[in-house]
Write a protein that binds this DNA or RNA. Sequence first.
RNA 1: GGACCCGUGGCUUAGCCAGGAUAUAGCACCGGGCUUCUAACCCGGGGGUCGCGGGUUCGAAUCCCGCCGGGUCCGCCA
Length: 560
Amino acid sequence: MFLDFMSEVEGLLKSALDRCGFAPEEGINSLGLDLTPHADLASSVAFRLAPVLKKSPAAIAGEIHQAIPHEFRYVEKVELAGPYLNFFMNRAFLNAVLNQALADNAWTGRMNEKVIVEHTSANPDGPLHVGHIRNSVIGDTLVRILRRAGCSVDAQYYVNDMGRQEAMVVVGCDHFHLDSIKADHAIARVYIAANKEMESNPAIREEADRVIQLYEAGDPDVTAKVQSAVRYAIGGIEQTLQRMNISHDSYHWESEFVRDGSVAEIVERLEKTGLVAWDEGSLQLDLNDYGFEKKMVLKRANGTSLYITRDLAYHRWKSANSDRSVDILGADHKLVSGQLRVALGLLGVREPEVVIFEFVSLPTGSMSTRKGKFISADELLDEVEKQAMEEVRARRPDESPEFLKDVARQVASGAVRYDVVKVSADKATTFDWKQALDFEKLSAPFIQYSHARACSILRKSEQIEKFQADLLVSDYEVALIKKIAQFDLIIDRAARELKPHHLATYARELAESFNLFYRYSPVLDASSELRDARLALARAARNALRTTLETLGISALETM
RNA sequence: GGACCCGUGGCUUAGCCAGGAUAUAGCACCGGGCUUCUAACCCGGGGGUCGCGGGUUCGAAUCCCGCCGGGUCCGCCA
């Protein structure tokens, strides 16, 4: 809804500038629009015009102000505040927001692109750890945001089945017994054991090399072994993701692109660029002209393909099957993804939009699956659930064990997701148990709780038919309506910029606005007309909170 | 050594890409609020050289340059 108000303001400003004969420089936000505490929307366009017009910003703003048309739909008034132009929403807008927020179909945007989002794609050599889930949570939240914005999204997991690490898993399975624990954890044990064994036994490395070669050659026995190991590990990973409300729509195995010949075709096409040469037995692509010192190896000396080559084929496929493709990658992939994009450019393939997130490390240093140095996502979820259980039990001692368990589970999964998504992706973080288990701070439970409060009010009331939105005039009521209105703006921005943490911030602000309304505007005890109007607002806020939580992948609990 | 990211109250953090009107929240700390729709809440208070130094600009947390500190990468690994 905010976007409608903003369009109107843009129109007003443009026509005023036209009348004055002013033309601000083209570009993003050329009208200098900004959210501000001073108004519902402000423009500082006068500052931009001042150097060209050789007049004071205040004088220019005055002229523009005079020229603004007086026919408003959602604008109440335009105030001149020195060099600033302040735009305010009118009652009709607030009422329209409220009415729209009461409809179920009002929460999806108008984007309609087909988007492929690749996220998680962790190697099937062990369980997800607290670093991987940053990828999963950012990825899944973006999937939800893009869908909310109106896009049709395919969430994909790219399965690295051909790499050295998977060969090591197969070797590990040959040498060691798979424990009867959760599949991905069992795989990690043999993988770690095989790596350890390799330190003293070089034959292990040769075995892995042989697995790589035989798998690429399509040897039936090795293929069966690899596929069963991969499926086993992925099964466990899926279970973990499910605990966080995350799932993928499709899986693509890198071997697909070798088997169908597209990897070979990509190499052939790159050879025609004249930038490819054999060097010390391997086939290499020289990207020096594009700012990359390191050559990109396309084929090993023994003829087998490499991750990057297979990834080129996968990306070509993704580009051909979507309007936008988005990759979620850890900071360690920055350089390679840069090379990948250049190589795709050479092939005339649309490049992916890459979301890079910085590392999650442990207080003792960085994590490593191979060395067995990590905190698994399962372990984190178990601990957070335990903590959540205590919190629920203390608050709802009379509820059934099933209720407590269910709430604890949803609070825990939400808490983990929110903790991850609230921090901007380009901030490196250090995992901290104390912080992860702290529910006192502002986090998912805070937002879930606001939603539960709204639900509680609605449970105790009857469905209202009519209400007078005009009665909602207190500061807190108006502020809440305005915050609800911002939903479309936030989704639009997050979907364009691929920054899910904007939505996390919004969720917190929305919950805060609701809590103030809850505190200062009694609903059920209000007298008739006011009660109905407040009930409508409570319902609208409930819808906004629910939709926001769902888009964050956090359960919108109705009671907790 | 080169490339990229980060540096905002004691701790965590928004704002930075598209420069504008008193710099955002939380935690911790101090003080207040439950016979009232769930107190996982709300209110008040103290606490900030926006890493440092230059520059651009009417105006810089935001843009540019240099430096310092931290992270990541620079494999015929993924």
